[in-house]
Design a protein around this nucleic acid. Structure first.
Lengths: 267, 267
DNA sequence: GTCCAAAAGTCTGGAATCAGACCATTGAGG
DNA sequence: CCTCAATGGTCTGATTCCAGACTTTTGGAC
């Protein structure tokens, strides 16, 4: 075995970007040498696979009690060999995220529930990923989610799309406390996915991921939920209205709120 | 050798995303299984490295006549072994993009100049990457660049940052025809890089990349340049003004124009 | 002309990854 | 109870990728 994961250490922050701590107005070359000559791959296949699966689990794409797709299929979808996938699954199993059962109707069952946050978790999470990376992630998320909302609001929506968006909105509003974060994620990702651009969807998923651990480390409070509900409604309304500017403004406001909340808990 | 590249075939489009052709309002699961269970890696290290270097060359990050960093340094920066890097360099050399000289003051010199487009190039480029991927790329670019502009306009800019932005703007305006695309790229990327978020910068670079081949396949016409100049000025002004909405609107308009231009040449 | 430093070029053993065949376990349905 | 299909578990040989040591070429400095 090559790696051990404990829930406390498992993180989706990924390897640090070398340029992450570059000064804010660094004198980059004529164009982005910094962004282009970055690492080709974030780690070896095993590590990246563990990250990916952990993402799917933590974001609730595969909720508690459900199982991952069969190994063969999953390996194909992830574009890796079954051997590598199995190593990743084993690591997650040993870390307590998965329960693997064999035989027909067997599979890798998710046994993860978002832990209720304890004091100090946030500090630790931030320390683990680095302050610069936190700012980076928040900025990135702001940009891609605003952009996605704008795009979607600009699009002519089909009735089907409108329904999906509305459904996700009520999904968050009706969510049980334990399910809140999961439904919140579902709502945010729906915006990106409905845009019809896989690249954009992937970027939003990635952005959200980078802050999941942090959000999981702060309690879900009633007033925050209510505040968020209003903002979510505003976002959905602006999109359904076909008002790009309003959609963006609403998303920006919402994310600003989340970021402020995080910074508040850190101060 | 594992691969051969000819200038005619070389492309930065990369492997197709399996979900690229998914229906616009496909019934995705409760959350984006589609975006999360996507391939972990886009290809093998060699292929990805070739793409990356080709990007740096085509985007003009390393302009004609300049050389890439020394192999050892570059390999470290790209996070790959020197052997793999060398294979990629050799492929690009054989394809005529690089001239490799040894000895002190040697190195891998870029000999690429953006080819003047010929009729049919665009059609071929689109065929190569696929219509769905084209829409995906355009959407993605719209989202991330709009988002980046918004973020930057929201930021309190240092004098240094303001200067950089202004410099890049005049860079495009004063560019010789042969340098136009390069300077245009530099301007667009500057917006993302000035945001201080490496993730965002990388996303914008990636987005731009996915349409470079297409843009290179259409002629640079005087009226288009003039039109673009006005829009670039509007973007810079809105950012310097600290007006997020205006900044975004300006970027959206500009990119819409580019997209329309592309579609026009395709029709 | 000699020396030297910086660069590309070469070689080797080992680790990671893959594709694919095959085995073992399980629960549902006949 | 037996069979079967779906699933995880295991093995093997080939390929890719790596780290690092070593060699060769080149042009400037003295």
């Amino acid at each position: 075995m090559r790696m051990e994961i404990t829930p406390a250490e498992a993180s989706v922050s990924g390897p640090r970007t070398p340029a992450a701590s570059a000064s804010r107005d660094a004198a980059v070359g004529i164009t982005g040498a910094v962004s282009l000559l970055r690492p080709v791959r974030a780690g070896n296949a095993f590590e990246e696979t563990v990250e990916r699966l952990l993402q799917a689990i933590k974001l609730g794409v595969v909720p508690h009690g459900e199982k991952l797709p069969p190994e063969r299929e999953l390996a194909t979808r992830l574009g890796i060999s079954r051997v590598t996938l199995r190593e990743a699954i084993r690591a997650l199993q040993e870390a307590g995220y998965l329960d693997v059962r064999r035989g027909r109707y067997g599979g890798a069952f998710v046994v993860y529930r978002p832990p209720s946050p304890r004091k100090g978790d946030l500090r630790r999470a931030v320390t683990r990923m680095g302050e610069d990376d936190l700012e980076d992630a928040l900025t990135f998320r702001m940009a891609v989610e605003c952009g996605a909302a704008r795009v979607l609001a600009t699009t002519e929506l089909t009735p089907r799309q409108r329904e999906t968006l509305a459904a996700r909105l009520s999904g968050v509003n009706d969510a049980a406390p334990a399910d809140y974060r999961r439904m919140d994620i579902a709502f945010h990702l729906a915006i990106a996915e409905l845009s019809g651009s896989p690249l954009l969807a992937a970027a939003c998923a990635d952005a959200r991921l980078r802050v999941t651990d942090l959000l999981n480390a702060i309690p879900v409070l009633r007033p925050n939920i209510e505040h968020a509900a209003v903002q979510h409604a505003a976002i959905a309304a602006a999109i359904l209205d076909g008002d790009p500017e309003a959609a963006e403004r609403a998303v920006a406001e919402h994310l600003e709120g989340t970021a402020a909340l995080l910074r508040g808990f850190l101060a």
